[in-house]
């Protein structure tokens, strides 16, 4: 019976350690507040001071609007929004890798608790065996 209990504890500890693998893999990288690929990086041109308009990429919106070749100084009469951006704005930067790091920490703490419990059980059982209790 003791062996059964100890075996179950060992298996549980092993399972938890295996489960921490993916979490630690995510947390191994240095957390970055700015997703490198998903979020567009803020442009250096953004400032509160008006500046001469730089040329911006010429593009159309799914063929529904004519492409603009230069930055307009004011909205033309035809289109109030002179250049329609593509896609959806990415205005939410989560903690990303920091999140997985926090999750990994929690899992790691749980695994450590299981290991400590298993180790304590092993010591107690060994002592009881040694004393013949």
């Amino acid at each position: 019976m003791r062996r059964t209990v100890l075996t179950a504890l060992a298996l549980a500890g092993t399972a938890v350690l295996l489960g921490t693998g993916p979490a630690f893999a995510g947390g191994a990288t240095t957390p970055s507040p700015v997703p490198s690929a998903a979020a567009p990086t803020p442009g250096p041109a953004e400032s509160a001071v008006p500046s001469p308009a730089p040329a911006e990429p010429t593009r159309g919106q799914s063929g529904s609007r004519p492409a603009k070749s230069a930055e307009p100084t004011r909205a033309p009469a035809g289109d109030q929004v002179s250049v329609v951006p593509s896609g959806a704005p990415d205005t939410g930067v989560t903690e990303g890798s920091s999140d997985s790091g926090a999750g990994g920490t929690a899992v790691g703490a749980g695994a450590a608790a299981v290991l400590a419990l298993g180790g304590g059980t092993f010591v107690v059982v060994r002592r009881r065996r040694a004393t013949g209790a």
């Binding site: 979020a39 442009g43 041109a45 008006p50 930055e71 951006p85």
Partner: peptide
């Protein structure tokens, strides 16, 4: 602040800083 377009055609967003601010898309009225 003022926001323009990113090279991929998406709208730029305000910088990720502690003092977060809103940004006006300058191709809009």
């Amino acid at each position: 602040i003022r926001l323009g377009l990113a090279p991929d055609g998406t709208v730029r967003v305000p910088p990720v800083t502690a003092d977060d601010r809103a940004g006006w898309y300058r191709h809009s009225p």
